[in-house]
Design a binder for these strands. Structure first.
Length: 420
DNA sequence: TCTGGGGTCCTAGGACCC
DNA sequence: TCTGGGGTCCTAGGACCC
């Protein structure tokens, strides 16, 4: 039998804000999405006030003022760096680590069977807090799905922040009380189908016929059944799989109708996506551009469309990709809509080393790679977008709003925390 | 006034082949 | 009247995750 642990940072974004601003301790905090649109993270105190996840900020503004809720725009530079610190710290304890998301990691504890796992988890938790300032919860189980479940319990129903589902006596009781929709991988669609089959608890799902579950929830659901039985179907993925697609998309800070503004935005998103792609050491084989109006403004004319351009050979050249993206935009742009969002997706990524060269060797990567290297180096040293392609424009008045951002304490010298 | 961004995996169905 | 069988590849769309 395997042993998995899921380590999950508590209210991660809110906790990051607190590390550098201890006065926030005990206060309700919310963090907003890009454009200060939605609530995407809440401290426990904010949750206790009944502020739902994903709700629009404007509809709660007054409540926030009345209840003295601290509001922050999202600060991904800070959160990303704090995440790195947490993950590096975890790796000190266990070499078999899968970084699952910005605030979660799976550990495989098979090599620690002889230890008191609860005590070990409590030690990890205490050290992470000491080294990074971030509180975490740890769930332990025989599969990833069970470790997730254990973490859910750890976060809500324990003082220690640690919960272990390996003990069968405990797990029987927990599974019989655990609602099926809280299981990792079961969302509202699956919940509905399971309820029609009379399955309400995790225990019922575990004991259901896997073939019948597969019929209704595909192989994904069947795997969950086995995972609940302690049979691991989802292995630890230590090596980060190279990305297959890279997307850059952003809602606008205001309504945009002019073609020129959209073109600027597309060029900027394409440029950003290309940077990410080169960092991954990949090249794309196609680019897809999509545009959409604001779906919440139901009284205005709605429009959404996208189109794709395939390249002759894989490329990560910003200039080439911008020009292709702009061609796509021209195909789908109509002047009579109010646009809210555009996106650029680089698709079918392949490694930039070796790999397939163009059949007729028309593509000479050397020159392009040199130019892109210079571009990336300058922007790395001098700051994002110091050097950019003309199409990206200068005014960028479509840009998103982010008015309540905290300092990037850990990644920018001029934003270091000052102690007076 | 005002509603995020970025991914993955799976399946069904069409196109095409022999 | 009546029209095979089996396979692969690709794509769009759905579902789900954080």
């Amino acid at each position: 039998m395997s042993i998995f642990a899921l380590v999950d940072c508590n209210n991660f974004y809110a906790s990051c804000e607190r590390v550098f601003n201890p006065a926030l301790e005990g206060k309700p905090i919310v963090i907003l999405s890009n454009n200060d649109g939605c609530i995407i993270a809440r401290s426990n105190e904010a949750k206790a006030l009944g502020i739902p996840m994903g709700c629009p900020y404007y509809s709660f503004k007054q409540i926030f003022q009345k209840q003295n809720v601290e509001v922050f725009s999202s600060n991904y530079e800070l959160y990303g760096d704090m995440s790195q610190r947490v993950m590096d710290s975890l790796a000190e304890f266990c070499p078999d680590i899968e970084v699952y998301s910005i605030d979660e990691a799976f550990l495989k504890l098979d090599g620690f069977k002889d230890r008191d796992l609860d005590a070990f988890a409590i030690e990890i938790r205490q050290k992470i807090k000491q080294w990074t300032g971030i509180p975490v919860s740890i769930g332990i189980g025989a599969t990833k799905t069970l470790a997730k479940m254990a973490n859910h319990i750890a976060k809500r129903h324990t003082q220690s922040g640690v919960f272990n589902l390996l003990d069968t006596n405990i797990s029987e009781k927990i599974l019989s009380e655990f609602e099926v929709e809280k299981i990792w991988g079961i969302a509202s669609g699956g919940e509905k189908k399971l309820k029609q089959l009379g399955i309400i608890t995790a225990k019922q799902l575990r004991d259901a016929n896997p073939k019948i579950i597969r019929k209704h929830l595909t192989v994904v659901g069947e795997r969950i059944v086995y995972e609940l039985r302690g049979i691991s179907c989802l292995p630890l993925e230590i090596f980060v799989a190279p990305k297959k697609n890279i997307m850059s998309s952003r809602s606008f800070g205001r309504i945009v109708t002019k073609y020129e503004d959209l073109e600027e935005a597309i060029a900027n998103y394409a440029s950003r996506a290309c940077e990410k792609m080169r960092k991954e050491k990949s090249r794309a084989q196609a680019v897809q551009v999509s545009v959409t109006t604001n779906p919440f403004k139901t009284h205005t004319k709605q429009y959404r469309n996208g189109t794709m351009s395939r390249f002759i050979a894989p490329t990560n050249d910003t200039m080439h990709i911008i020009s292709q993206a702009v061609k796509c935009l021209k195909q789908i742009y109509h002047s009579d809509y109010e646009y809210k969002k555009v996106s650029v997706m680089l698709m079918d990524l392949v490694s930039d080393e070796g790999g397939q060269q163009d059949l007729f060797d028309e593509v000479n990567y050397d020159k392009s790679d040199k130019i892109m290297g210079v571009l990336d180096n300058i922007n790395l040293k001098m700051g994002r977008n110091k050097l950019f392609i003309g199409t990206q424009g200068i005014e960028r008045n479509w840009k998103m709003q982010r008015n309540k951002q905290s300092s990037r304490f850990t990644t920018q010298w001029h934003e270091l925390l000052e102690v007076r």
